[in-house]
Each structure stands twice: as C-alpha cells, then as structure tokens.
Design a protein around this nucleic acid. Structure first.
Lengths: 197, 197, 197, 197
DNA sequence: CGCTAACCGAGACGGTACGTCCCGTCTTTAC
DNA sequence: GTAAAGACGGGACGTACCGTCTCGGTTAGCG
C-alpha cells in the first residue's frame, strides 16, 4: 500500500535544498569567525559556499536570519557534560567545558556578534536567551542537589550561584583581556562556594 | 602683565573644533543607542548633529574611531562610588550602582555594540579592557580590605570574587532575558560570600 | 533543426544590459549638453536615466569612460553625405552638413566637452582623432578627384585643403562668437579654392 | 603738502594685493597646465602660491573667474608680430607664430580648458571671443592690403581667408593627432591662396 | 526513460553608506 | 586691519554590499 505512505509523512523535499542549507550554514559560520558580525557579507558567504547569492535568499529572508540560523547550528553542536565524581568535581568539569567553549570554539568567536545581533533582533534574542537558559539547567540542577545533599553550603540560590560561576567566565571573555582558563575552575568554585574543609 | 601671557604658549585651538567634537559625540551615542553597532551610519550621525559629513571625517579617521571615542566619553561619565557603612553595605551599594549602569544607562544601551566593536578593533579593545579594569579596582580593594579585617570570609581571591559579583550582573544583561535588579544585590552577596551570621 | 542551433553559440546576454547601456548613454549626452564636461555628474546621469548609480559603474569604470562612450554614440550618429552634382556642389553640401552638425546638433553641443576630455584622456583622444580623420576621408577623396579631373585648381594638397575648409567651420564654432552658417559655404569654397570663372 | 596727495588720485593700493594677485595668477597657470581645467583645484593653487585659500577668494569670486583672469594674463603675454618682407613672407611668419603658440605654449596647453570654460560661462566666452578677434586683426589687415596691392588674388574675403588659415592650425591642434608645424606654413598659404606664379 | 517542475549559478538591478576630495563660506589668530 | 590658516556645510566621487529580480542550465522524481 504505497499510496498510504505517500500522503502520510514523507514530504521528502528536494535533497538539493538540505544540501544547500548545510553548505551555506557552514560557509556562514566560517565567514562569521573570519570577519565577525560587522564585516559579514552575504556575497562572501555565497562565494565561500560556491553558491549563488539568490540561493541564500531563497532559504533565508535576510542576513540576520542566516546569522541566527548559523548560531543555532553552532549551539546545537555544543554537547552536554555528563559524568561521575563528587559534585565539586562535576562542577569543575562543567566550568572547564564552558571556559573552553567560550574562549576557543566557533561559538566563542561569534559570541560578541551574537550579543550585538540579539540586542537588535527580538527573535534572535529570544533564541539566544532560551538557549543559554537551557544550557545552564544541568548546572543549576547539580548545584541544587549538592546543596540538598549537604555537599555545598546551604542557604544559597542555585540559579544565582550558577550565574555567578558561569557569569565570571563570560565576564572574563567579554570585558577583560584575561579570558578564564580551565585551570582556574577550582579557584572559582572555592571563591564562590568557599573552600572545602 | 597680560601682554606677557599673550605671546607665551597659549596654543588655544579654534573653539569651533571642540564644539563640533561634542555635538558629534553626543549624536554618535544617540545613534549607537538607537540602531546599535551594526546599523551605525556616519551619515546619520552627521544629520543628527546638524553637521557636514566631512566635519566628522576631519576629526576621526573612520567610523570605528568615532565609535571608540563615543564609548570613551560614555565611560568617563560613569562616576565612582564612594561612601560609608559596613563593607557589606558598601559592596551592596556598588553592585546596585553597577546594575543600574549596566541595565539602564547609555552605557548599558551601548554595551553590546561596544563588545562587538572591541572584538574587531585592537585599540578599542585595549581601551575597553583597561577601563573595565580601572572601574573594578575600588571594588577589589574593598573586598581585599574586608577579607583582611575579617568582615568577609578568608581564603578568597579578592579579584576573582569581584569578577564573580560583577560578572553575574553583566551575564544577566547580556545572556539572559532577566537583567539583574538592584534588589538582588544582597542575595548575590549572600550567594557569593555566604550569608551573614 | 532548431535543437542544433540551440547548443551552438548564442551566448545571448541579459537583455537588461543593453537596455541599461542605452538609457544611460542617452542620459549622459543630455547631461553633457546641459552642464558640460566640468559639471558632468554621474549621480545626475543616474537620476536622469532613472537608474541606480551602481548600474552605471557596473558598465563603465569611471566618469571619463562613460563620457567617451557617449561621444562614440554621438559620433556614430553623424551620417555620411552621398549625393550627386558637380564637385563644387557636392563640396558645398558637405560643408553645409558639417556646419549644421558642428553648430546645432548634440555633437556640436558636446564638442567643447569632448575636446577638453580628449586632452585629459589618451584613449579618448585616440578615438576622437580617429573618428575625425574617418569623417573627413570622403571630403579629401572628393577634393583629390576634383583636382585630378581639373574641376579644382591643381597644385594643392587635398588633405590640407579639406582641413582649411572644415577647420574654418570648427574655428568659427570654438573661437568666435559668429558660428559658420550653411549660407557661407559657397563663399568659403570661393575663398579657399578661388571663384569659379 | 603730502596730505594733498593723500586724497587726490593716488589709488596706490596696498602693494601686497598686487603681489598676491601675481603669485596667485602664476600658480593658477601652473595648475592649469599641470592638471587642466577638469582637475583644477583652488586649494592646490593656494598651496602652489603659498597663500591662504581665503586670499584667493578675496580677489576672485570663484574658480571660473580666477581661470578667466589667468587666461587673460596668458594672452596678454602673446606678443604681436610686426616685421618686414613681402606679404606672403609676413603671413608665413604670422602663421608660424600662431602654430608655435597654439601647439607649444601655456596658451596652447590651456586652450581646450579655455574652450570648455568659455562654453559654460558667458563672461569668459565674451572675453575669449574678443581676444581672438583682436589677435586676428593684423592678419586680416595684412591680407586685405595684399589683395588691394595685387599680391594676393582678388575676390576673396580677407576675414574668411584669415579664418581659413588660422582655423586650419586650431583644427589640427584640437581635432587631429598631427598638430600644425611651422614648416607647413608655406604649404598652407599655397593651398589657400594658390601657389605663387 | 523522458518530461517537467523545482532548484540552481550567475549576476544585473535600484539603493544606501562608505571614506575621499574639493568647493566656496566663515571664523580665529598672528603680524 | 590684512592675511594665513584652516574649520565648516555641502555634494560628487568611486567602492562595497544590500535585498530583489531575471536569466538559462541542471537535476530530481513522476509518470
């Protein structure tokens, strides 16, 4: 009964479309990393991707939408951090990962552009905030459970604690000339949660 | 002997120059706040300032230099915070002020533009970082002395502590949809330094 | 066999290109006639032609190239003069035509601009000279054959004779306030070649 | 009684003014010769003359007026040609002189610019035409008297004859790539007036 | 396996802002 | 009290991209 299949799901779109989307997004990320949000040129992306400019405009309404999608792709690549150990060890591992991503990765390279773009475009801003919130959930949960279990000192707001830890890393990236290094993770935890006894 | 003064140094420059600089910088800040770094147009600034485009280029080599100078002016306007009380009270006052500035002021409005611009221009980046460092010095000093006096728990790095506090505020401004409110200052201090006994 | 034709040459270019070229050249000539070489503004030409400035720069590298091309178009419009009669009659007809063109036509309007432009741009100068030489060939040939046939007095250089005749017309247009009128054609011939007996 | 002198004639103006006028006119001519009418920049003239731009505008209302005055100075320098010999010899001498001036001198260099400028500015045009007419008077007079004396063939209009001779030289300068050389003077006279018996 | 629709690259189009140059005016300071 | 120096508002230059559009040529997948 193949016809049944026909009008069920399978709106299998032209495969050229997905292929175009992917090479364009990749080229967009390369462009962003290379010249930043300010210098970002659709025409360069088209050239990089070996694609006609019109193909880009066929899939995205404008420059910002493309950038937003590129960011999306970028963030989807950031993988969560699930491992074992004491809460303090787990937390340190998370912070080291965040530091890596914020400082080194394509995500980090695009971060200033992303912040500026989010400031101008509401849709992008929503996505930006939502993603950031999502990414922090495991950290907040970890802190909450560690407080509950007595591993971390009581009387603290888990979310605020997480923001203080993560915020330090972003602050160092965006506002100082000394980005946070993974080696500082333990010192940061000690500073915010107090040293272990 | 006024005549004596006459032919000494007195390289009094054309007063029109300073006047132009001021109206242009003011217009540039307005433009930045209105349309951000990406949409910033010298021609709009000229129109806003009621000035010929060439007058702007007479004083700044290009768009970025004007933006940098506008930021400089902006930051110079942020006033230091000197008052009395317990270290915890002083710190809360500082954080409330930072929150105000980061969230509400022209500085806050331009912050994303500034971060993106700093990412692209080394000279601007240096200035941005230097200013931020300068602005935090009193906070770090306050924390250091409070630790020394026993008002704050020992074993913490004052600088890292300050960055965790300040960083939380910037993080909330730049990466979340819930900017830090002055009312949260005490909770933040409690979270990072532990509650008062 | 239409298919055979299909994949032969036929690199039919975008028809918009030719259309743009034509409206722009027409507008350029209008501009030249109106404000001359000195006041000639690409932006005005674009406005006149109802075209984006960038469209002009897509087809010509700069102002001078556009002017050169406009002159070319102008000169291509000057039509040769082929008719019957005695050599003297033919010559008079030619001179009347030259007088018309030099004094009244778009060519005449643009002539000073053309001379000035040719002075500044070697390529344009070459074209200008070549065209002028080409345009005079029939006149020189006519004079040469009339000398050979005894219709015109012997011992004269046909080319120099032609230049004296044509040159008078240009001189009057460019250096005096009394342009040459067609009615003077016979008097000019009499003056240069002597009256008919 | 020196005071009497004071308010009589003595329009002796500030000698600096005349001095300024002269250096500026000289600089203007140099500029014209160097970059032509099109590239002529008041600011360059000021720099060449070691003079403030405002000094130029104090003496001339605008660019065109300065150029016109420069032309005037230029033409005033062209000296008449008065010598002895047969009419044919005198005429040849005149034509050689005109050829020299038109081809080689500053006047010749500025000629295209002058023609174009005259086309745009009525005052300049008047001057241009008047000067040219003036310059040709001796030639016309010479031809007229030579016709009267029987040295030149009868039945010719002296003015038109002069224009044919002079016009050839200008035509060759402005419309061809082979400027008239003094050596051709005799051939030109032979062509227009017929060879001597 | 051949048709047709869609997607594609290429790039022309009307615009807008860039940063430069020069205009002609106006202001300030020095001699 | 003139002149230099040069700041000013203005406007055209030629460049780079924007986002829209019109082209043929290629390719997928249905019939």
């Amino acid at each position: 009964m193949p016809t049944a299949l026909k009008h069920t799901v399978d709106p299998r779109p032209d495969p050229r479309i997905e292929r175009s989307r992917q090479v364009i997004l990749a080229a967009a990320l390369a462009e962003l990393g290379a010249v930043g949000y300010g210098g970002f040129a659709i025409e360069s992306v088209a050239a990089r991707a070996g694609v006609g400019k019109s193909t880009i405009y066929r899939h995205w309404p404008d420059k910002l939408a493309l950038i937003a999608d590129a960011f999306r792709k970028l963030q989807d690549e950031r993988d969560p951090e699930l491992e074992t150990g004491t809460p303090r060890e787990k937390l340190a591992r998370i912070l080291r990962h965040v530091a890596d991503v914020v400082v080194d990765s394509p995500f980090g390279k695009c971060l200033p552009a992303m912040i500026e773009a989010a400031e101008r475009d509401p849709a992008l801003r929503r996505y930006h905030h939502r993603f950031q919130a999502e990414a922090n959930k495991p950290t907040i949960a970890l802190i909450a459970s560690a407080i509950a279990s007595g591993d971390f000192p009581a009387g603290r707001d888990p979310k605020l604690t997480a923001q203080a830890l993560i915020g330090t890393i972003f602050y160092r990236r965006l506002m100082t000339d000394a980005p946070f290094t993974p080696a500082e993770a333990v010192a940061l935890i000690d500073t915010v949660l107090g040293s272990e006894v």
